[in-house]
Simulated assay, not measured.
Amino acid sequence: MRIVVMGPSGSGKSLVGAAVAAALRAEFIDGDDLHPRANIAKMSAGVALTDADRAPWLDAVAAALHRPRIVVACSALRRAYRDRIRSLAPGTVFVELVVPPAQLRTRVSRRDHFMPATLIDSQLATLEPLASDEAGFRVANDADLPAVVARITALVTGQSLR
Rank of each mutant, 00 (worst) to 15 (best):
158 G>C: 09
162 R>H: 15
48 A>K: 00
107 R>G: 06
111 R>C: 01
65 L>W: 00
38 A>L: 11
94 F>S: 03
90 P>G: 10
39 N>I: 09
93 V>N: 07
1 M>Q: 08
106 T>Q: 15
50 T>D: 09
65 L>I: 01
105 R>T: 13
101 P>T: 12
43 M>F: 05
66 H>W: 09
87 S>R: 07
76 A>W: 11
88 L>P: 00
137 F>W: 10
147 A>P: 01
110 R>L: 13
63 A>W: 03
34 L>G: 02
150 A>E: 14
39 N>G: 12
68 P>D: 15
28 F>G: 01
160 S>A: 15
2 R>V: 02
104 L>P: 11
20 V>Y: 08
155 L>N: 11
6 M>P: 01
140 A>K: 06
82 R>A: 06
153 T>L: 10
99 V>G: 11
32 D>S: 11
122 S>G: 04
99 V>C: 05
37 R>Q: 15
13 K>I: 09
80 A>V: 10
105 R>Q: 13
116 P>R: 06
120 I>C: 12
80 A>K: 05
145 L>T: 09
14 S>D: 07
93 V>S: 05
56 P>Y: 13
134 E>T: 01
33 D>S: 10
61 V>H: 02
162 R>E: 15
113 H>A: 05
48 A>C: 04
67 R>S: 08
48 A>P: 00
130 L>C: 00
144 D>M: 10
144 D>R: 14
85 I>M: 00
85 I>W: 07
26 A>R: 03
18 A>C: 01
140 A>V: 02
110 R>K: 08
115 M>T: 03
134 E>N: 04
139 V>T: 01
24 L>W: 09
28 F>P: 00
48 A>M: 03
151 R>V: 01
129 P>R: 12
54 R>E: 11
25 R>Q: 14
16 V>P: 07
52 A>K: 14
27 E>Q: 12
116 P>V: 03
153 T>V: 15
141 N>I: 04
4 V>M: 05
151 R>D: 12
16 V>D: 01
2 R>G: 05
94 F>M: 05
62 A>C: 00
65 L>G: 03
104 L>Q: 08
97 L>P: 05
2 R>P: 11
10 G>W: 11
141 N>C: 06
53 D>F: 11
159 Q>P: 08
148 V>T: 13
160 S>W: 15
7 G>M: 00
137 F>A: 02
12 G>D: 01
55 A>V: 15
11 S>L: 01
103 Q>C: 13
98 V>H: 05
78 R>A: 14
